[in-house]
Design a protein around this nucleic acid. Structure first.
Length: 226
DNA sequence: CCAAAGATGCGCT
DNA sequence: GCGCATCTTTGGG
């Protein structure tokens, strides 16, 4: 289980290193699980961060020790962050893909599909798109503000772990999504595991120019990640 | 008390 | 890329 020592580092470092890690949430008696493929870093003095708006009771989680869960509700849905080193700094977990291994059960995907049904459709949401967005991820894993905001990870109910044998080969670094003009929107604090770019919030490799841009300047080699 | 704002998602052009 | 539904929290009157 990732703990204080993992999260008590710079937000950008933690954001990159969370790629490939696996979230596990117990729902009734069943473990739900997703591998993180997209994250964003936010700093206290970064005009787009919630922390930059100042301390309030609601934002307390951002000012708590590294590794504290910070959740908020906006646009009709929940989003999940983890506080990192330095008061007010945090990493937003933006998307993942369902992760299946010995610790998961055969009904997991079906349960996640029921938790996160496709809007205006009776078709189930395709497996790899169940967690393609910060609010969709929370919905598929049954993560709610009421239950988890300002809480610590708990190895019996909700934690993040390192999986042996997987480190992203390539990480895409781009500008964060949905940041209004004048709010430090130029900062490139969004990170995507290139291998799973098709399943993140918005595929940064959608067109040829973007792919070239990625290969030319935005590839981070594994040794640069850590 | 209520209007308005969101670190969004979806569907249509 | 753009408009619109979404719904809790916030802060001003």
């Amino acid at each position: 289980m990732l703990d204080f020592s993992f999260f008590n580092r710079d937000a950008v470092i933690v954001a990159k290193e969370l790629l490939g890690k696996v979230m596990r949430v117990k729902y009734n008696a069943v473990w739900l699980s997703a591998m993180i493929i997209e994250t964003e870093a936010y700093y206290l003095h970064d005009k787009s961060s919630h922390a930059s708006l100042g301390f309030t009771e609601k934002r307390r989680g951002l000012f708590m020790p590294a590794g504290t869960i910070y959740m908020y509700y906006a646009r009709g849905a929940d989003s999940m962050n983890v506080s990192v080193k330095g008061e007010g700094n945090a990493v937003l977990i933006k998307s993942g893909i369902p992760f299946i291994d010995d610790a998961t059960t055969d009904n997991m995907i079906h349960i996640m599909q029921q938790l996160n049904p496709k809007k205006n459709s009776h078709e189930p949401r395709p497996q790899n798109y169940l967690c393609s967005g910060q609010t969709l991820l929370c919905r598929s894993l049954n993560l709610r503000v009421k239950e988890w905001d300002q809480q610590q990870f708990d190895r019996d109910r909700f934690f993040i772990e390192d999986i042996d044998g997987y480190v992203p080969e390539k990480i895409i670094q781009t500008k964060r999504l949905g940041i209004p003009k004048g709010r430090d929107e130029h900062l490139e604090y969004r990170f995507v595991d290139a291998r799973y770019a098709a399943f993140c919030t918005q595929n940064p490799l959608k067109n040829r120019a973007a792919v070239e841009d990625f290969t030319e300047k935005n590839t981070l080699k594994t040794e640069e990640i850590i």
